[in-house]
Amino acid sequence: MGYLASIGSYAIMIVEVFRKPTKWRIMKSLILKEIDELIYGSLGILIFISFFIGGVVAIQTALNITSELIPKNLVGFATRQSIILEFAPTFCSIIMAGKVGSYITSSIGTMRVTEQIDALEVMGVNALNYLVFPKIIALLLYPFIIAISMYVGIFGGWVAGVFGGFSTSADFIEGVQLDFIPFHVTYAFIKTLVFAFILATIPSFHGFYMKGGALEVGKAATTSFVWTSVVIIILNYILTQLLLG
Protein backbone atom coordinates (compact mmCIF):
# COMPACT_ATOMS: atom_id res chain seq x y z
CA MET A 1 0.00 0.00 0.00
CA GLY A 2 2.86 2.33 0.90
CA TYR A 3 4.57 1.62 -2.44
CA LEU A 4 1.35 2.36 -4.35
CA ALA A 5 0.96 5.64 -2.48
CA SER A 6 4.56 6.55 -3.33
CA ILE A 7 4.02 5.74 -7.01
CA GLY A 8 0.90 7.94 -6.95
CA SER A 9 2.76 10.80 -5.25
CA TYR A 10 5.58 10.44 -7.80
CA ALA A 11 3.07 10.69 -10.68
CA ILE A 12 1.48 13.79 -9.14
CA MET A 13 4.94 15.30 -8.69
CA ILE A 14 5.76 14.76 -12.38
CA VAL A 15 2.54 16.57 -13.40
CA GLU A 16 3.33 19.45 -10.99
CA VAL A 17 6.85 19.80 -12.37
CA PHE A 18 5.45 20.84 -15.74
CA ARG A 19 2.74 23.18 -14.39
CA LYS A 20 3.05 26.93 -13.79
CA PRO A 21 6.53 27.38 -15.27
CA THR A 22 9.12 29.71 -13.81
CA LYS A 23 10.08 32.79 -15.84
CA TRP A 24 12.39 31.86 -18.73
CA ARG A 25 14.95 34.48 -17.66
CA ILE A 26 15.42 32.65 -14.35
CA MET A 27 14.92 29.14 -15.72
CA LYS A 28 17.68 29.66 -18.31
CA SER A 29 20.30 30.33 -15.65
CA LEU A 30 19.04 27.44 -13.53
CA ILE A 31 19.36 25.03 -16.48
CA LEU A 32 22.92 26.22 -17.23
CA LYS A 33 23.85 25.77 -13.57
CA GLU A 34 22.44 22.23 -13.56
CA ILE A 35 24.25 21.35 -16.81
CA ASP A 36 27.49 22.45 -15.15
CA GLU A 37 26.71 20.51 -11.96
CA LEU A 38 25.12 17.33 -13.32
CA ILE A 39 26.67 16.87 -16.77
CA TYR A 40 30.02 18.65 -16.87
CA GLY A 41 30.71 17.72 -13.24
CA SER A 42 30.20 14.01 -14.00
CA LEU A 43 32.37 13.90 -17.10
CA GLY A 44 35.66 13.20 -15.28
CA ILE A 45 34.47 10.24 -13.22
CA LEU A 46 32.66 8.65 -16.20
CA ILE A 47 35.72 8.98 -18.45
CA PHE A 48 37.94 7.48 -15.74
CA ILE A 49 35.63 4.53 -15.07
CA SER A 50 34.85 3.90 -18.75
CA PHE A 51 38.53 3.77 -19.70
CA PHE A 52 39.41 1.16 -17.10
CA ILE A 53 36.25 -0.92 -17.48
CA GLY A 54 36.86 -1.01 -21.25
CA GLY A 55 40.38 -2.25 -20.52
CA VAL A 56 39.17 -4.93 -18.11
CA VAL A 57 36.54 -6.19 -20.58
CA ALA A 58 39.23 -6.54 -23.27
CA ILE A 59 41.61 -8.40 -20.94
CA GLN A 60 38.90 -10.72 -19.58
CA THR A 61 37.72 -11.57 -23.11
CA ALA A 62 41.27 -12.23 -24.30
CA LEU A 63 42.05 -14.45 -21.31
CA ASN A 64 38.94 -16.52 -21.97
CA ILE A 65 39.80 -17.22 -25.58
CA THR A 66 41.56 -20.52 -25.23
CA SER A 67 40.60 -22.15 -28.53
CA GLU A 68 42.69 -21.44 -31.63
CA LEU A 69 39.46 -21.64 -33.65
CA ILE A 70 38.10 -18.42 -32.13
CA PRO A 71 39.28 -15.41 -34.13
CA LYS A 72 41.47 -12.86 -32.31
CA ASN A 73 39.25 -9.98 -33.42
CA LEU A 74 36.69 -11.22 -30.87
CA VAL A 75 38.46 -9.09 -28.23
CA GLY A 76 37.53 -5.85 -30.05
CA PHE A 77 34.08 -7.17 -30.95
CA ALA A 78 33.22 -8.19 -27.37
CA THR A 79 34.56 -4.93 -25.96
CA ARG A 80 32.44 -2.87 -28.39
CA GLN A 81 29.28 -4.86 -27.74
CA SER A 82 29.68 -4.84 -23.96
CA ILE A 83 30.44 -1.14 -23.80
CA ILE A 84 27.76 0.09 -26.25
CA LEU A 85 24.93 -2.22 -25.21
CA GLU A 86 25.30 -2.38 -21.46
CA PHE A 87 28.24 -0.73 -19.76
CA ALA A 88 27.87 2.82 -21.06
CA PRO A 89 24.09 3.22 -20.88
CA THR A 90 23.19 1.02 -17.90
CA PHE A 91 26.16 0.76 -15.57
CA CYS A 92 27.16 4.38 -16.06
CA SER A 93 23.56 5.26 -15.09
CA ILE A 94 23.90 3.28 -11.88
CA ILE A 95 27.15 5.08 -11.15
CA MET A 96 25.31 8.35 -11.88
CA ALA A 97 22.52 7.30 -9.50
CA GLY A 98 25.20 7.30 -6.83
CA LYS A 99 26.89 10.51 -7.83
CA VAL A 100 24.18 12.74 -9.28
CA GLY A 101 21.22 11.08 -7.54
CA SER A 102 22.66 11.50 -4.05
CA TYR A 103 23.56 15.10 -4.84
CA ILE A 104 20.02 15.86 -6.04
CA THR A 105 18.35 14.18 -3.05
CA SER A 106 20.63 15.75 -0.47
CA SER A 107 20.49 19.26 -1.96
CA ILE A 108 16.68 19.26 -2.27
CA GLY A 109 16.34 17.45 1.08
CA THR A 110 18.49 20.08 2.79
CA MET A 111 16.30 22.79 1.27
CA ARG A 112 13.27 20.98 2.73
CA VAL A 113 14.86 20.67 6.19
CA THR A 114 15.95 24.31 6.28
CA GLU A 115 12.47 25.50 5.15
CA GLN A 116 13.82 26.91 1.87
CA ILE A 117 11.15 24.97 -0.04
CA ASP A 118 8.48 26.39 2.30
CA ALA A 119 9.90 29.85 1.57
CA LEU A 120 9.48 29.24 -2.19
CA GLU A 121 5.91 28.04 -1.72
CA VAL A 122 4.99 30.97 0.53
CA MET A 123 6.16 33.31 -2.21
CA GLY A 124 3.84 31.55 -4.66
CA VAL A 125 6.66 29.86 -6.60
CA ASN A 126 5.99 26.37 -7.98
CA ALA A 127 8.87 24.80 -6.05
CA LEU A 128 8.76 21.55 -8.07
CA ASN A 129 9.06 23.39 -11.36
CA TYR A 130 11.79 25.64 -9.97
CA LEU A 131 13.86 22.78 -8.55
CA VAL A 132 13.18 19.70 -10.68
CA PHE A 133 12.45 20.97 -14.21
CA PRO A 134 15.99 22.39 -14.77
CA LYS A 135 17.44 19.03 -13.73
CA ILE A 136 15.28 17.16 -16.25
CA ILE A 137 16.31 19.53 -19.04
CA ALA A 138 19.99 19.42 -18.05
CA LEU A 139 19.95 15.63 -18.07
CA LEU A 140 18.67 15.64 -21.67
CA LEU A 141 22.37 16.16 -22.41
CA TYR A 142 23.16 12.89 -20.64
CA PRO A 143 23.40 10.91 -23.93
CA PHE A 144 26.34 13.15 -24.91
CA ILE A 145 28.44 12.00 -21.95
CA ILE A 146 27.35 8.43 -22.57
CA ALA A 147 28.60 8.77 -26.16
CA ILE A 148 31.94 9.96 -24.75
CA SER A 149 31.87 7.04 -22.30
CA MET A 150 31.35 4.59 -25.21
CA TYR A 151 34.28 6.06 -27.12
CA VAL A 152 36.59 6.12 -24.09
CA GLY A 153 35.55 2.59 -23.04
CA ILE A 154 36.43 1.13 -26.44
CA PHE A 155 39.66 3.14 -26.47
CA GLY A 156 40.50 1.74 -23.02
CA GLY A 157 39.92 -1.75 -24.40
CA TRP A 158 42.25 -1.02 -27.31
CA VAL A 159 44.99 0.31 -24.99
CA ALA A 160 44.72 -2.69 -22.64
CA GLY A 161 44.47 -5.18 -25.51
CA VAL A 162 47.33 -3.82 -27.60
CA PHE A 163 49.77 -2.65 -24.90
CA GLY A 164 49.00 -5.66 -22.68
CA GLY A 165 49.89 -7.99 -25.52
CA PHE A 166 46.42 -9.57 -25.70
CA SER A 167 45.60 -8.45 -29.24
CA THR A 168 47.11 -6.65 -32.17
CA SER A 169 45.83 -3.21 -33.06
CA ALA A 170 44.62 -4.47 -36.44
CA ASP A 171 42.71 -7.40 -34.90
CA PHE A 172 41.11 -5.17 -32.28
CA ILE A 173 40.00 -2.53 -34.80
CA GLU A 174 38.70 -5.25 -37.13
CA GLY A 175 36.68 -6.63 -34.22
CA VAL A 176 35.29 -3.21 -33.36
CA GLN A 177 34.06 -2.82 -36.95
CA LEU A 178 32.76 -6.39 -37.29
CA ASP A 179 29.00 -6.86 -37.78
CA PHE A 180 28.26 -3.35 -36.56
CA ILE A 181 24.52 -2.73 -36.21
CA PRO A 182 23.79 1.03 -35.99
CA PHE A 183 20.47 0.35 -34.20
CA HIS A 184 22.46 -0.85 -31.17
CA VAL A 185 23.67 2.73 -30.68
CA THR A 186 20.10 4.03 -31.11
CA TYR A 187 18.93 1.45 -28.58
CA ALA A 188 21.62 2.58 -26.14
CA PHE A 189 20.63 6.24 -26.53
CA ILE A 190 16.91 5.49 -26.07
CA LYS A 191 17.78 3.71 -22.82
CA THR A 192 20.03 6.59 -21.81
CA LEU A 193 17.26 9.17 -22.27
CA VAL A 194 14.82 7.11 -20.21
CA PHE A 195 17.44 6.65 -17.49
CA ALA A 196 18.20 10.38 -17.56
CA PHE A 197 14.56 11.12 -16.71
CA ILE A 198 14.71 8.57 -13.89
CA LEU A 199 17.99 10.04 -12.63
CA ALA A 200 16.45 13.51 -12.44
CA THR A 201 13.06 12.65 -10.97
CA ILE A 202 13.40 9.77 -8.47
CA PRO A 203 16.15 11.48 -6.41
CA SER A 204 14.16 14.74 -6.57
CA PHE A 205 11.08 12.91 -5.29
CA HIS A 206 12.99 11.48 -2.33
CA GLY A 207 14.49 14.88 -1.49
CA PHE A 208 11.33 16.93 -1.97
CA TYR A 209 9.01 14.79 0.14
CA MET A 210 11.46 13.87 2.90
CA LYS A 211 10.61 14.62 6.52
CA GLY A 212 12.92 15.11 9.46
CA GLY A 213 16.39 16.52 9.93
CA ALA A 214 19.98 16.08 8.81
CA LEU A 215 20.04 12.34 9.57
CA GLU A 216 16.97 11.81 7.39
CA VAL A 217 18.66 13.68 4.52
CA GLY A 218 21.38 11.01 4.57
CA LYS A 219 18.81 8.23 4.74
CA ALA A 220 16.81 9.77 1.89
CA ALA A 221 19.97 9.92 -0.27
CA THR A 222 20.62 6.21 0.35
CA THR A 223 16.98 5.25 -0.31
CA SER A 224 16.97 7.31 -3.48
CA PHE A 225 20.13 5.55 -4.74
CA VAL A 226 18.59 2.13 -4.08
CA TRP A 227 15.29 2.96 -5.81
CA THR A 228 16.91 4.75 -8.75
CA SER A 229 19.15 1.70 -9.33
CA VAL A 230 16.24 -0.74 -8.99
CA VAL A 231 14.09 1.22 -11.46
CA ILE A 232 17.00 1.51 -13.92
CA ILE A 233 17.66 -2.25 -13.77
CA ILE A 234 13.95 -3.08 -14.28
CA LEU A 235 13.53 -0.57 -17.12
CA ASN A 236 16.74 -1.87 -18.70
CA TYR A 237 15.18 -5.33 -18.88
CA ILE A 238 11.85 -4.02 -20.24
CA LEU A 239 13.47 -1.77 -22.86
CA THR A 240 15.85 -4.51 -23.98
CA GLN A 241 12.92 -6.90 -24.42
CA LEU A 242 10.93 -4.26 -26.31
CA LEU A 243 13.72 -2.95 -28.55
CA LEU A 244 15.91 -5.99 -29.15
CA GLY A 245 13.73 -8.96 -28.14
Binding site: T114, E115, Q116, D118, A119, V122, M123, G124
Partner: peptide, 12 residues
Protein backbone atom coordinates in the same frame (compact mmCIF):
# COMPACT_ATOMS: atom_id res chain seq x y z
CA UNK B 1 0.56 34.91 -1.52
CA UNK B 2 2.53 37.70 -3.17
CA UNK B 3 1.02 40.06 -0.60
CA UNK B 4 2.49 37.92 2.19
CA UNK B 5 5.99 38.03 3.61
CA UNK B 6 7.32 35.31 5.85
CA UNK B 7 10.27 35.20 8.22
CA UNK B 8 11.03 31.58 9.05
CA UNK B 9 12.43 30.29 12.31
CA UNK B 10 15.73 29.34 10.67
CA UNK B 11 15.61 32.31 8.25
CA UNK B 12 15.26 29.92 5.26
Amino acid sequence: RQDMGMVFQGSA
